[in-house]
């Protein structure tokens, strides 16, 4: 069994009397440590797929197995527990809490797990250092640039040592240079810890970082493309950075 298995997944929204098929019949397997990109235009159903993978939305039909657990069947509390232990999130608009410092924001998933503050802060600081923001721990989100905020977001996603990271248009609000930095950082960290990374985007450039690109149009997977150059891009970027 693959790390993530999606079977016969269907999602239907009702708009008045009309049925809208957001996802028609999705079957997909994603392996542990894989960087997978779900590529599609807006309205293609890619975000719906991500939401269901993260357990934020219930499918109309079908099953989603992550690490052997069918999350489509979990109740609210078990889903929360599942998210605490298995998932990390990176959002387009960062979704940091404005009143909290970078350190506190990163420590949040650990707080929900019930870890005491001292341990939380230690782990969060380590993570901030890993994303290159060790000197910004006392800063609040509005005192940082978009790129820095997204790094804080990445640190927050990784801090609880999840098995899978979901990234929803992670660079949508960033300029090209920062996009490259953020993507490189995120993909590198996943590779280093052998984490599964699922990126949802409409941007071909971003897709280039993935091992596999899943094209989705009108709620259906049209093609799955193995990207043999993924490693190359990454090493290339690293070379650029060291130069």
């Amino acid at each position: 069994m693959a790390f993530i298995e999606i079977r016969n997944l269907r999602k239907i929204y009702r708009l008045g009397n009309e049925k809208v098929y957001a996802l028609k019949n999705i079957d997909l397997e994603i392996n542990k440590g894989e960087v997978c990109c779900i590529l599609g235009t807006s309205g293609s159903g890619k975000s719906t797929l991500l939401n269901m993978l993260a357990g934020l939305e219930k499918p109309t039909r079908g099953d989603i197995f992550i690490n052997g657990v069918n999350i489509a069947k979990l109740n609210e509390r078990r889903l929360a527990k599942f998210r605490q232990e298995n998932t990390g999130f990176v959002f387009q608009s960062y979704n940091l809490i404005p009143q909290l410092t970078a350190l506190e924001n990163v420590g949040m998933p650990l707080m929900f797990k019930g870890l005491p503050k001292s341990i939380r802060n230690k782990k969060a600081l380590k993570m901030l250092k890993a994303v290159g923001l060790g000197d910004r721990m006392k800063h609040r989100p509005n005192q940082m640039s978009g790129g820095q905020q997204q790094r804080v977001g990445i640190a927050r996603a990784f801090v609880a040592k999840p098995n899978v990271i979901f990234a929803d248009e992670p660079t949508g609000n960033l300029d090209t240079k920062t996009t490259i930095d953020v993507m490189t950082l995120m993909v590198d960290m996943c590779r280093k810890h052998n984490l599964t990374l699922i990126i949802v985007t409409h941007d071909i450039e971003i897709a280039a970082y993935a091992d596999r690109i899943v094209h989705i149009i009108d709620g259906e997977i049209t093609s799955v493309e193995e990207n043999i150059h993924a490693e190359d891009i990454n090493t290339e970027n690293e070379r650029e950075e060291t130069e």
Binding site: R77, N95, F112, A160
Partner: peptide, 13 residues
């Protein structure tokens, strides 16, 4: 928004 973030990050309701 804050409540949403908390939920997504695994906070029990």
């Amino acid at each position: 928004r804050e409540i949403g973030i908390m939920k997504v990050l695994g906070c029990f309701i």
